[in-house]
């Protein structure tokens, strides 16, 4: 029998397979298809202080081996998430869930984090710092080590739950930003968010996405994500939740060898709604194939000569 259990800052998961925020709703669309309790956990739809419609449509564009999305954090706002969505989520998922939090000011992050801190079913806070800072000229919180560290410090001050900072790859040096988050008290790093991308419609000769650009995800970005996780693992001691183009149990293991303690499935959920379940089921036999008995022991294995 192989051991698939992993530990994220004291939160023990049955397996490292998670679903990424924005690709799994609040779980119940998928619970119609299979028992989602087979997952290690999942990160629910990014939550902001106020309700948001998000960006105008079209919000989706296809790419070779991936897609661009520009949803723009559509969500009903933290109050409704707590009063309406989380009770529904609890009926179909009985393990601690990951709360994904977005914000446009420091105060929004802390207000949402403080409210979700009180939710018993939430095991971990994942802070999306790819949002623009409206008081900082619209620059993303995650594009400078200073603002990334400041979000980390402020969120840590209002919650007892583990805080994982979800990093954007659209930066010059992701390692220094990860280190700044660790120094500011982050319990872990979640990476990578989508890569900024674009497509143009030849018929209309205009960008397909109404907002012109969007976040590129899917199997095409796997090598980029893997490389960044490998680099960040060398520099920080805190756990990493890895994501970016994962489609198979082999990808999960590869990402763990690079340094991820757990791995999220994102875009693949949208094209194969059974993807996460199939990966959970395939994991033990793939581990056996490569002579692995305990998943936790392989984390960062590629760094040990």
């Amino acid at each position: 029998m192989v051991n698939t259990k992993v530990n994220l800052s004291g939160l023990v998961l049955d397996n490292p397979v998670l679903c990424a925020s924005g690709t799994f709703g609040y779980g119940y669309e998928f619970a119609e298809l299979y028992d989602i309790n087979c997952l290690g956990s999942f990160s629910f739809k990014g939550t902001t202080k106020e309700p948001r419609f998000g960006n105008p449509t079209p919000r989706i564009a296809e790419c070779p081996m991936g897609m661009i999305n520009s949803v723009g954090l559509q969500n009903p706002g933290v109050e409704k998430v707590i009063s309406e969505e989380l009770p529904k989520l609890r009926r179909v998922f009985h393990k601690p869930v990951i709360a994904n939090i977005g914000g446009f000011t420091f105060e929004e992050y802390t207000e949402v984090a403080a409210l979700l801190d009180k939710e018993e079913g939430v095991g971990l806070l994942e802070i999306n710092i790819s949002c623009p800072n409206v008081h900082g000229g619209g620059m993303g919180f995650g594009t400078s080590a200073e603002t990334a560290a400041e979000v980390t410090r402020r969120v840590k001050a209002v919650t007892k739950k583990p805080v994982y900072i979800k990093l954007t790859p659209n930066v010059t040096d992701i390692v220094s930003i990860a280190k700044a988050c660790e120094d500011a008290g982050a319990d872990g790093i979640s990476m990578i968010n989508t890569l900024l991308g674009m497509r143009i419609d030849l018929r209309r000769k205009q960008p397909i996405i109404k907002n012109k650009m969007g976040g590129f995800s899917g199997p095409a970005i796997f090598p980029v994500a893997l490389r960044m996780i490998y680099q960040v693992y060398e520099a920080v001691k805190i756990p990493i939740i890895g994501m970016g183009g994962v489609t198979s149990a082999e990808d999960v293991i590869e990402m763990m060898l690079a340094g991820a303690s757990a791995v999220q499935i994102g875009a693949q959920n949208l094209v194969n709604p059974f993807a996460a379940k199939e990966i959970v089921e395939a994991l033990p036999s793939v581990m056996e194939k490569y002579g692995m008995e305990d998943l936790e022991s392989i984390i960062g294995g590629a760094h040990r000569g």
């Binding site: 924005g22 709703g25 419609f53 449509t57 079209p58 919000r59 989706i60 949803v71 559509q74 959920n269």
Partner: peptide
């Protein structure tokens, strides 16, 4: 009609505004 990601309500790619609230074209 709208460009869709998943087609089953998970990604919010095809949302629209209506007088009765936000709706997903696919769901």
């Amino acid at each position: 009609e709208e460009r869709m990601g998943c087609g089953f309500g998970a990604c919010m790619g095809c949302s629209c505004k209506t007088l009765t609230g936000y709706k997903r074209i696919c769901k």
